[in-house]
Amino acid sequence: MSKPVLLVTRRLPDAVEARAARDYAVRLNPEDAPRTAADILRLSQGADAVLCCPAEKLDAATIGALPPTVKVLGTFSVGFDHIDIAACRVRGLPVVNTPDVLSVATAECCMLLLLAAARRAGEGERLIRAGQWTGWAPTQLLGRQVSGRHLGIFGFGRIGRELARMAAAFGMVVHYRDVARADPAQEAGAIWHDDDDSFLAASEMLSLNAPGGMATRRWLNGERIARLPRGAVVVNAARGTLIDDPALIAALGDGQVGFAGLDVYDGEPALNPGYLALGNVVLLPHLGSATAETRDAMGHLVLDGIDTVLAGGAPANLVR
């Protein structure tokens, strides 16, 4: 029996592509060229499965026009904002994604942003690279100590809880804000706040870990920033849309926010140029989950899902 045909829209980690080539008649993209919806429709002719990536927008028209041979759609991401799930349901097309496996790497990125921002790593790094360091001084580039501080986590999902665990090892007191209280086993000593006021007032350091969407759009606005302790540290590795950028930039300028660390931006891969003019921000290019281990795990998980659907089973990572 011939192998089923799998279209992979972008270049994937070597180990993942090797597995795909072992199990499928695979159509790869070795140049990693961006794919339009029209490209995907053309390349998926006769394919049994499509493995797409978050940069590709698969709207209702595209889903409806996929060849009838396509029995499953995988996405190399935990999010599926780029796929019209309702249209998939109408078409009877199961969608599988990569939940859970990104949580730890993303929480690590939050911890990196927190430490790098509070300890002024961006400024220190630039001093060394420019060859301008003149030597140790008692008052040079003084940052803020992270261990022992109060950390507020906005959004206590999988990533927020992983971050809480890491922060506890730094002796941080963890506060969280979410729609409902987590069960005590998951809480692991973190303090739930059912209103913004008490949560913001407690957050000497604040990490945003909530989902995107209208409900959280620009949640961190000027009015909420004003309720943080003066000189607070703010980090965001979740969604750029959670922050009102002009308000945060103003607060970083006047000292209400001491330092910020960002991995995501409203309008990325562009960002508000106001951030680039600031020394007290550490900026990363949306690589929160970008570790070799995590990307391999994502690839294996989505292939597991595709394998299962084609074998007639019900995968655990089916998007419902």
């Binding site: 980690p13 940069a55 790094e125 960002l271 290019p285 970008a290 070799a292």
Partner: peptide, 27 residues
């Protein structure tokens, strides 16, 4: 997690999303 390279990308203005196998760090 390649913080130096990532920061340098941002300070140069970014403007391009990375491929799934690009610029990977270590967990």
């Amino acid at each position: 997690r390649r913080a130096h390279e990532y920061e340098a990308v941002m300070r140069a203005g970014w403007g391009r999303g990375f491929g799934m196998g690009e610029m990977l760090g270590r967990k």
